[in-house]
Design a protein around this nucleic acid. Sequence first.
DNA 1: CCACTCCTGCGT
DNA 2: ACGCAGGAGTGG
Length: 292
Amino acid sequence: MPEGPEVETVRRTLAPLVTGARLGVATVSTLPLRTPITGADLAFLAGRVVSDVGRRGKTLWLRVGGDADDGTAGDDHDGIVVRLGMTGQLTVTATSLPVLPHTHVRVPLVDARGVPTGTELRFRDPRRFGEVVPFRGSAGLAGLCAGLGPDGLALDDDDRAAVAGALRQTARAIKEALLDQRVVAGVGNIYAAEACFLAGLAPTRKGTSLTRAEATRLVEGVEETLAQGVLHRGTSFSDYVDASGDIGDNARHLFVFQREGEPCRRCGTTIARIVQGARSTFWCPHCQRRRR
DNA sequence: CCACTCCTGCGT
DNA sequence: ACGCAGGAGTGG
């Protein structure tokens, strides 16, 4: 997926397209997503106005205000959470454009009288590891974000200290620890490897082996690589697109991810690939020499 | 800690 | 035919 920078790019491109817009009646495909839903589960959206598009880590949400068309009273904390999984796409598309295969949720945008405006929100996800989950009331969104650590794109000094401390406490390899959304939210397989590179640390280093200075560098590396990802509007290898359907440009700025066999951009050493926790890790054996 | 699961698609 | 893919959860 779509890791934090990609989800943030979706949020930034989606917000101006839907904020203040009124939603119509959602349609939902029959194939189950990670969390199965039906059209009835999204019926509360009809007639409501999008008030806010938010994100924490890889979790994106739309909140709606006002009351529903069916007369039931709305709560300003109602909405939907969208998780993109590996191949999810959340776009605003002209209704006239072909509906691509694997499109699972469609929500038309309508005017005050309920007349379609000609665009719709679409969630497409070939592998169906993603999900669209309705929530009602403030406790609903909080529950869906429970367990997420601080957002890696918005760390304050307290967060930085907490993340560095958590990394120094785990017996796991640092690259695997970075994938744990409870430690820091929004880091996935691309940016975990990139953060280790920027910190000059072998991805196999145990968290408990890090000095304070190394842990601080690793947190800085996380922040730097995530910020670079947003700057370049996300990394597109296959499926990722923003809310307008545009790909991101960050792949060409990566130092190690998916660069096995290619020369390191810093030292020319051949980038290596190893497997950690059943997932590929790319790294530069020279720039990330193991110390200790 | 690991292995395995959910899925589809693409490259070799 | 097989391995691999940006995620995340479960069960041993």
